[in-house]
Every structure is written in C-alpha cells, then in structure tokens.
Design a protein around this nucleic acid. Structure first.
Lengths: 256, 256
DNA sequence: CATCTCGCCGTACGCCGTACGGCAGGCGGT
DNA sequence: ACCGCCTGCCGTACGGCGTACGGCGAGATG
C-alpha cells in the first residue's frame, strides 16, 4: 500500500486533509464511508464549544456521531490533526469587519476585536498551541485579510508579519487568561469571596505589610477597584491600548 | 478531626502550605514523617526542569523520592497544589537585577529579562495557569520588587498593577511560544525542513498565490529572513520593544 | 455468485490522578 | 514493661485518556 507518495504518519497527511484533497482512493471496492471529515470536524467543534477543550475526547466525539471511537481514525489520523482541522475550519468561517479606508488604529483594533470575538465564541481556540499553525485555506484567508490591515503604513514585509503576530499574540494571551479565569470559577468548588473569607485571617496573621509596603498598597488598591483578584476584561482593555500605542510608535517612525 | 478551622479540601490548605505553617499536628503519636513538603517540591521542580511539565506525574515524583505514589498525598493535597508550591518556590529563589536609579525603560527591561531567564531555567513556569497565582512568600517578594520598577513614574496604584501584569503577560506568552516551539522540535519525528520538503509539492499545487498575494509575499519574506516558519526569539525581541514603547506612551502622558 | 477490498470497531495496553482502607511502627500513658 | 492508640505509608482499584492491532462482514467488481 505504501506508495512512493506515502502520506506518512498523520503529520504529513494533515495538509492534504486541510485542503480536502481526495485521498489516494482509487478502487471503489468495499463499503462507502458513512461519515466525512467535515462531519467529524463539525461534531468536534460543537463538543468543544459546549463542553470545553478538556471534554474533547475521541470517545466523546465518536459518541456524538453515533460511531465507535476507533472509527474516527478512518477519517482523521489522530487527535492532534483533528485539532488542526477544527482550527482551520473556524478560521475559515470567522466573521470579520471590513476596514478598508479606516485609519490604521481602527483597522488594527478591528483585527483584535474580531479575534477576540472568535475566542469568545470558541474558547478552545485560544488554548491550542500557536506553534506551527495549520496551513489550511482558513488560516490563509485570515492571514491575507489581517495583513491588509498593516498595509500602506510604511512597514516592510517582515515588520508586517511581526506586527500582526504581536497583535494576535496579545489577543490570544488575553483570551487564554479569560478562559482560565472562567474555568477556575466554574470548576472550583469555592467562590472568590468564600476563598478570601476563609483565608483572610491566616493571611492577615502571616503577611507582613511592612515588609512588602508597595505590594500591600497596590494590591489592595487594585483589588478594591476591580472587586476581584484578576479581571481579564480589564486587562484586555488596558493591554490593547498599550499594544496599539506601541505599534503606533513603530508606524510613526516608519512614516517619517 | 475536622475542627472549626477545618483546612478543607486542598484549595484551602494550600495557603498554609505556601507559608509553611505548621499543620494542626498536636499529638506526637505515630511514626514521624520521612519526607517534607520541601523535599517533595524540590523533587518535583527537578523533574519538571529536566523532563518537562508533561512528564511531571505524581508517580514519577514519588519514584524520584523513593516512595510509593500515594505517599505524596501525606505532604501535598494534590497535583494542583503541588504546582502552586513549585511556582512559589522558584519565585522565591528567582535571581533578579538591581535597578534602582536606572531610567524607567531599563528598569522595565530588566524585569522582563529576569522573568524570561526564569522561564528559560524552568520552562514549565510559563505553562502553568496564570489565573489565581499562589499567594505565597515567593510571589509576594517578587510582586513587591517588580512593582518598584514602576514606582515614581506618575502612574497610580491601579495603573502600576495593570502595567506590571501587562509586561509579565507578554513575557509569559513569549516563553510559552518558545516552549511550544521547542517541544514541537523535540517530539516531532520530522524536522522543519523535512516537513517542508515533503509538503512543498502539494502546497505549490494547491496554494493559489494570486488569491492571497499579500500573504504569499509577506509569508515568504518572513520565512526567508528567519529561515523558519516561526522564530520565538525574534518575536520576543520585536514584541518587547513594542511593549516598552506602549508603556512609554502611558508614562509620558502621566508625566505631563 | 465468487472474490476482493476496505470501512468499521472490539479489545487491549500503558498511561494518568487519586479514593479508600488496612497494616505496621512508634509514642504516651499506666 | 507493656498496651493501645495514632498516624505515616502505601497496595489496590476505579474511571478516564489516546490509540495500536487485527478480525469481521458488507458491498462493489468481475
């Protein structure tokens, strides 16, 4: 079976799958496939959306499709490749705002907003690794579209790529933090207030405010304003302004 | 046994453990403990450093200590709490550069450099969740010291906390990307060049450069300059300048 | 109708975190 | 000196995971 164009062990087959290249299927013998790659990917996305990435298991995807777990491996080399396919699929269907003609800061803000909205709809997107992204049609279209927001600003090609990666990295890190905070609130048996109430006496006895005066002052000020230890939404809004300001410095330098 | 100050199920006991509060041990009956929390934490850190976070399992920590897996639960409520203890321990021993008197940009750059060095020595640090950090002595000292880098710049208390979290978030995200890239290179059976060589023909046939002209131009330019698809070190250097520039805009606005 | 092919999937392996309960060793009290 | 309690230690087990392997049976071809 292994021909000279042996697709190899998953890692090599994923590109063909991403572009939905017809497999090396030549003969028509045997039963037809009852499912499709798209059906598997769609079921996996729905499961991850509704139950979270940690609930995305091959067994549960199979259950949602009414097949046995091992049947999935007919369509997909493994779980890692399934995640690649899921990612490219949501990239391809991602809604985006048209920004041609707007000032650069609004264009970049729109890119950030679109990506944040994607992570809002599909929280697992922020949690899958960003190393070696899936080179499928969805990512290509997204990359092309988002690069255009950085066009005509005086940046060279490499800087455009750097700047986009920087912006997307910030959005991903923010979304990850939001997701972690949400997961903590969901799965922790104890609420923030309960935790604080239970631990405040011990902390008050043990924490020496005179040793850490700045920490005590700043920490309590931040805690009071936000009402909680960590507010991911606030961190996002604060951070995005800094990101845009920082890119603005580069853009103005190149403009001159 | 459960007194009115019942330490409860792990999540509540972790604070006492972080500060190494003597447990509710009153009677001296029974055998002495053969290990200590510190020994368990040290073994776990060494294991995570040398074998990676995914290799950090209770069984392997126990093996390194020469005890049975379940014995660890005498010292530590569970794996999550062990991670908290590990994190606070490396925070407490973290080397840092003295920056009093330096200009603000160098102070902030030093904070970033120290944290990146920490993630370099202990790659797992970047991978554990940032939500609800361990409120132990190590984190307190780190928080105090790093806040001082933002002191006297005209920022109010909340802004100081925001700015520090922003800077640390960037460093963490960068370190995570580096770690992911390293893990990919290590565990993938195929190198970057091999992958490209194997997939280039398919990609050339399938990828329509006229549909995505900007992506094709920018992607190939970035790939040629860096020699690889993704260069985490370059992304860090580029990003850090933007982060500092962005914070500079805020600092100058407050300075006026 | 025989035969070939291939989708499907039952079973199993080696991992994980950790709940439960028994055993044995060391200490305090008598 | 001895007994009995307390407690650290840990053997066993459960329910989960990804997926390798190989057999079975259905469907299309000839």
């Amino acid at each position: 079976m292994t021909s000279s164009t042996d697709p190899g062990s998953g890692a090599a087959r994923v590109l063909a799958l991403l572009w939905r290249e017809p497999g090396a299927r030549t003969s028509t013998r045997g039963p037809r496939q009852g499912l499709s790659v798209d059906a598997v990917v769609a079921a996996a996305i729905e499961l991850a959306d509704s139950a979270g990435l940690e609930a995305l298991t091959m067994r549960r995807v199979a259950q949602a499709l009414g097949v046995a777990p091992m049947s999935l491996y007919t369509y997909v080399p493994g779980k890692a490749e399934l995640l690649d396919l899921m990612l490219d699929a949501v990239y391809g269907r991602m809604p985006y705002t048209e920004t041609a003609g707007l000032p650069w800061r609004e264009r970049l803000a729109a890119v950030a907003r679109d990506n944040r909205a994607l992570c809002d709809r599909h929280p697992w997107v922020a949690l899958v690794s960003a190393a070696r992204p899936p080179l499928g049609p969805g990512l290509m279209a997204k990359y092309e579209r988002e690069l255009l927001a950085f066009d005509g600003l005086g940046l060279d090609d490499v800087e455009m790529d750097d700047a986009l990666a920087y912006l997307l990295g910030f959005v991903q890190a923010s979304a990850r933090a939001s997701s972690a905070a949400r997961a903590l609130r969901r799965e922790s048996a104890i609420t923030d207030e309960e935790w604080w109430a239970a631990n405040e006496p011990l902390l008050a006895r043990i924490f020496d405010a005179t040793r850490y005066p700045t920490a005590a002052r700043v920490g309590s000020a931040a805690g009071e304003v936000r009402g909680t230890a960590f507010d991911p939404d606030h961190a996002y809004r604060f951070g995005l302004e800094r990101v845009l300001d920082g890119l603005g410095v580069l853009i103005e330098a190149r403009d001159r």
